[in-house]
Nucleic acid binder design. Structure first.
Length: 705
DNA sequence: CGTTTTCGA
């Protein structure tokens, strides 16, 4: 077979010489340079695999797998032999494996068992410019390791033009090798000013291109599912009104992460002849997925980005301007197959002066509890977490928050040293709070259930939210027949749903019928299996096999399960929200925090009222900064509650865009209760107090009898 | 009457 000559081949000797002379080097290789597939082979041929393996990290699983396949093919070997890959749930390597592709998360996990990574003679950190949380931690660890394992370990960091110097400085001013890429020119067109509505502006631009420009697909970036659907609806409407025959046919396709795989596949299928495609996508199309045939890119310049607020311990999603690196990346999507065009819906001055040069790295906008625990468990000598060398230092608040989170779940002691418990927790691929809950569950004999809950909480929503169907009033949501936890809360509901699925032999059709995300359910099953194995491995000492596996099926009372979850999440919020003293909380995902019923002043009584309280933080911090606490409660009991409470101050809440309680600033110390039924209502804090009093009075009168 | 980007162990 004839293998194409790639730009990187011309640099072979320069690269090999640099690597021979230096422990680390930075390689700047633009898209199409061939670095991802060729570097490893180059080192293999140069004999570096005689003393160990070549490890190449990728930020994404699919990339690790597909690149390994490609390289195996080029070398004429089977995947899993000389060339292999290792990703979560799947290790395709053997003792023969000389070149190993793996996700950066996987390499990080290997550090736990072998901090000096002795199996490797070369480590290539690919796509380091993407600055994923895991890559950043690896960068910090490798910086230490390089000096330690000199001269037998070689490290190559591949990065983009922009931060090559920075990477080199970080690695003791190591040399930089530049390799050109292979991309067609993309003409950039700026708007004179920002459109009033970027959605309308984007739709209009797409139509203009469609009616006046030569063939070629259009890629339009939007921030989320909802926006994508709106844009598509508008586009379709406008396209309808075009004169028939005035231009070519057009298909409009959505593309976003939670879109079911078969729908995503439509974007990669063969387009009909003589028909233009308009693909409306989230930033998934920026790096993760590449759509062939795109010639025009429309870039409104925004992304939805997760942000973590250490003061409240919550993350939120915010629409923010993209960085220049992202803008360049988006434009590049137009030049993969031939020269293209990128329409930026903002002025050039905005690009130059308003956009950040690079995206704020994830390490500066995530909770670092897991990261810090990981680093602590490596027991690196002479290390002070607050002083660890990161390429970009996270804020002190972020680090202190991580330490306090870890202290609360007993993972570290007062002096900041990792505890035995903390060590066990570090081995579980979970956020520390959930890891703590699992260990508590083991002691409370409800591990089986806790595993399920932890697994379901580790995946994206298991519910499939179908796009709105036309103008039908009722939203097509099919999971009405699923167990609802009987008011026992989301966790119990997850447990019941998973158990029901298991009873149906993990049938995928069953998932479909009940409106569940097949992908998420499968993922939960894999996670559950993996977590179970890790929990067992730790317990193994001295215990017979059979007993072990039965502990995975152990089922305790709902109360035991709650207690276990509380052990992980308990106090976390109470700790931060002194207004809520007396309320204990357990967390649900990262945005919702439930107050445990047993600690709620309006406890469940014989009438079955008040099964749970939920604090909905995102609402508090992002939309309505004047509201300090919002309690969101399940619909099932709201009505009886409303009936019971008279003289209530109920205010309607109609969506995020309109303010609740307009123009009225609330006192800081007033907790708000938001009741969630079909419609949402806000109750004032005095009602909570009144209800609490009544509850206590009733309890008192019962006690007197 | 409202719903969430994207990766990863």
């Amino acid at each position: 077979m004839g293998l194409a000559v790639l730009p990187i081949h011309a640099y072979t000797s320069e690269i090999l010489e640099t690597v021979a002379k230096n422990a680390v080097c930075v390689l700047i290789g633009e898209t199409g340079s061939g670095k991802t597939t060729q570097l490893s082979q180059m080192f293999h041929q140069a004999g570096y695999t005689k003393s160990g393996r070549i490890g190449v990290t990728q930020p994404r699983r699919v990339a690790a797998v597909s690149v390994a396949r490609r390289v195996a093919f080029e070398m004429g070997v089977q995947v899993g032999e000389d060339v292999g890959y290792s990703i979560r749930f799947e290790d395709r390597t053997s003792s023969k494996t000389a070149i190993k592709y793996l996700t950066d998360g996987c390499l990080l996990r290997e550090c736990l068992f072998d901090p000096e990574l002795h199996q490797y003679s070369v480590i290539i950190l690919d796509e380091a410019h993407e600055r994923s949380l895991n890559t950043d931690i690896l960068l910090g660890l490798l910086r230490r390791l390089v000096s330690k394992r000199k001269p037998e370990l070689k490290v190559v960091i591949t990065s983009a033009t922009l931060d090559g110097e920075k990477m080199s400085d970080f690695f003791f001013k190591c040399p930089i090798v530049r390799v050109p890429g292979k991309l067609y020119p993309v003409q950039i067109l700026y708007s004179k000013e920002r459109p009033v509505s970027y959605l309308d502006g984007a739709v209009q631009t797409a139509l203009d291109i469609h009616v006046s420009e030569p063939p070629g697909d259009i890629l339009l970036f939007m921030t989320g599912q909802d926006e994508i659907e709106k844009a598509i609806a508008k586009l379709e409407e406008e396209v309808q009104s075009l004169d028939e025959g005035s231009c070519m046919d057009v298909v409009i396709l959505p593309l976003y992460g939670s879109l079911p795989p078969e729908m995503q596949a439509r974007v990669f299928g063969q387009p009909p002849d003589n028909c233009r495609r308009i693909i409306v996508a989230t930033n998934i199309a920026e790096t993760s997925l590449t759509v062939d045939g795109v010639v025009y890119v429309i870039d409104p310049g925004l992304v939805k980005q997760r942000q973590y607020n250490p003061a409240s311990g919550m993350d939120s999603l915010a629409v923010v301007p993209i960085s220049r690196v992202q803008a360049i990346q988006r434009a590049g999507r137009a030049g993969r197959t031939r020269p293209g065009r990128c329409y930026r819906l903002y002025p050039e001055a905005a690009y130059e002066h308003e956009l950040l040069a690079a995206t704020v790295p994830e390490i500066q906008r995530s909770s670092l509890a897991g990261t810090v625990l990981h680093l602590k468990s490596l027991e690196l000598p002479d290390i002070d977490i607050l002083d660890f060398d990161f390429l970009d230092q996270p804020s002190l608040e972020l680090l202190e928050d991580a330490l306090s989170q870890l202290y609360i779940v007993d993972a570290i002691d007062k002096s900041g040293s990792i505890t035995a418990l903390g060590k066990r927790m570090a081995e579980l691929p979970l956020e520390p709070a959930l890891a703590r809950a699992l260990i508590a569950a083991e002691e409370l004999d409800c591990l089986g259930q806790a595993l399920t809950v932890a697994a379901v909480l580790s995946c994206e929503s298991i519910f499939y939210n179908a796009p709105r169907q036309g103008k039908e009033k009722k939203r097509a949501r099919e999971h009405g027949s699923l167990p609802n936890g009987r008011g026992l809360g989301d966790h119990i509901q997850y447990l019941q749903i998973y158990d029901a699925w298991e009873k149906n032999n993990f049938d995928l059709e069953w998932c479909k019928e009940n409106g569940l995300q097949i992908r998420a359910m499968k993922f939960a099953r894999d996670v559950r299996r993996q977590l179970g194995q890790i929990m067992l491995r730790k317990k193994r000492d001295g215990e017979p096999e059979k007993r072990e596996s039965s502990s995975l099926r152990k089922v305790g009372s709902a109360r035991a399960l709650r207690q276990a979850l509380c052990k992980g999440f308990g106090n976390r919020l109470a700790h931060r929200l002194p207004h809520h003293n007396g309320y204990r909380c357990i967390g649900h995902k990262s945005q919702l925090v439930q107050i445990h019923p047993s600690a709620c002043p309006l406890e469940v009584d014989e009438e079955g009222l008040l099964p749970e309280w939920v604090l909905y933080h995102e609402l508090i911090s992002t939309t309505h900064p004047f509201i300090r606490h919002v309690c969101m409660v399940e619909g099932s009991w709201v009505e009886p509650l409303l009936k019971k409470m008279d003289n209530m101050d109920i205010r309607g809440l109609s969506g995020r865009k309109t303010p609740i309680v307009p123009e009225k600033r609330l006192e800081d110390d007033k907790a708000m209760v938001m009741a969630r039924t079909g419609s949402q209502q806000v109750l004032s804090s005095t009602l909570v107090d009144a209800a609490r009093e009544r509850f206590l009075a009733r309890k008192q009168s019962k006690a007197n009898k």
